[in-house]
Design a protein around this nucleic acid. Structure first.
Length: 349
DNA sequence: AACCAAACCAACCGCCGAGAT
DNA sequence: AATCTCGGCGGTTGGTTTGGT
């Protein structure tokens, strides 16, 4: 029959470990290895359950454990891996030498999760949240802008500012809605080839024109976001992450290979390969079977993060952080995310 | 200085799959 | 085949630290 239970002795000590206990455990393992965790406490002279000893060793005493703050690279790696693996802390930890699953889990729960939520992204899906609360950070940012305007430093009138503000908000809403539409999971059919919706194309057109209306600077390589106008620290200080993991898994080159993007100053037209008819608005995207089981980005190539600084049209410096991971580029700013993940946006000029 | 709330993190709890009995 | 342990995992708890008023 089976064995007797391991940790059913209620006389065993629980709670924080003392330095003496730590020393006993370390001494024993360094001499004999841990072997059977069940037998270890008795052999090491500890009044602890084997499970407790194992936890103490793996999470705290192990000599190869790295202590201290997580680096930007580690943070980036966690975000990327979490977007692929979810809460598989041990799997994530296996890619971060010296970090334990417990440490990563704590770091995620106390820092990264909050960051994503603040930015309006669902920490579990890494996608823009569609519920009302996701808009709160942006609404707060708009309130901050109003306060800035109230301080009277602007050359333009309040009405002009309000109009621009309104247009900005509408633009953000469109971008968010567009992202929602472009998500494979959001599609009712789950078939990306069904994405020929006339509503979406007209949305693209309206987005295009509204961007130009709102932001005359647009036409250069980057679309500036409201957050950048506002100098919102919550977004500028943000870390790069994977907002749309499924699409990111499609290599840009293969992705673009299937599409010919044609654009004119006031018209947004998407053509499929092999048919240059301007009336054709079908959009060929690799089938869901190709995207449903993406392979994780290669960890052999560490993420490369670049931060560039530019000025928005209110004269404030703003920075954009771009990371490349496994050949897939992501971007921290909303619109830049859009540009990176949907290559056709890059072509608008 | 005192109090309170939020943040942090080590440790525990309960579950699961694999393997032993 | 059934029962049980072991090791591992993810979720949660609760004590401690930190920051704000």
């Amino acid at each position: 029959m089976g064995r007797s239970p391991c940790c059913d002795d209620s006389g065993l000590k629980k709670g924080p470990w003392t330095p003496e206990e730590d020393q006993k455990l370390m001494n024993y393992i360094q001499k004999h290895g841990h072997g059977s965790w069940r037998a270890l406490p008795k052999l090491a002279g500890l009044n602890r359950c084997g499970k407790s000893c194992r936890l103490r060793w793996t999470n705290y005493l192990r000599p190869d454990i790295k202590r201290g703050k997580f680096s930007q690279e580690e943070e980036q790696t966690i975000l990327n891996l979490h977007s692929i693996l979810g809460n598989k802390w041990s799997a994530i930890a296996s890619h971060l030498p010296g970090r334990t699953d417990n440490e990563i889990k704590n770091f995620w729960n106390t820092h990264l999760k909050k960051k994503l939520i603040q930015m309006g992204f669902d920490p579990m899906t890494h996608r823009p949240r569609t519920d009302i609360f996701s808009s709160l950070p942006h609404l707060l940012a708009l309130v901050n802008l109003k306060e800035l305007i109230d301080q009277g430093s602007s050359h333009t009138s309040w009405d002009e500012q309000a109009l621009r503000l309104q247009a900005e908000a509408a633009q953000m809403a469109r971008i968010q809605y567009l992202q929602y539409l472009l998500q494979p999971q959001a599609s009712t059919s789950n078939n990306l080839n069904d994405f020929t919706d006339i509503e979406t194309i007209s949305l693209l057109n309206s987005l295009c024109s509204s961007i130009k209306d709102v932001n005359p600077v647009f036409g250069s390589s980057h679309l500036e976001t409201s957050a950048q106008y506002l100098g919102s620290s919550s977004v500028q200080d943000s870390i790069p992450f994977s907002p749309l993991p499924d699409l990111q898994m499609v290599p840009s080159s293969a992705y673009q290979k299937d599409m010919i993007i044609n654009q004119a100053p006031d018209q947004f037209t998407v053509l499929s390969q092999g048919d240059n008819s301007p009336n054709n608005i079908s959009w060929n995207i690799p089938s869901s079977s190709n995207t449903s089981t993406p392979s994780p980005p290669s960890l052999a190539a560490p993420p490369v993060t670049e931060t560039s600084t530019s000025n928005n049209n209110m004269g404030d410096a703003c920075s954009t952080t771009t990371s490349s991971y496994g050949g897939v580029a992501t971007n921290s700013a909303w619109s830049d995310l859009l540009l990176e993940d949907y290559p056709f946006f890059n072509e608008i000029s």
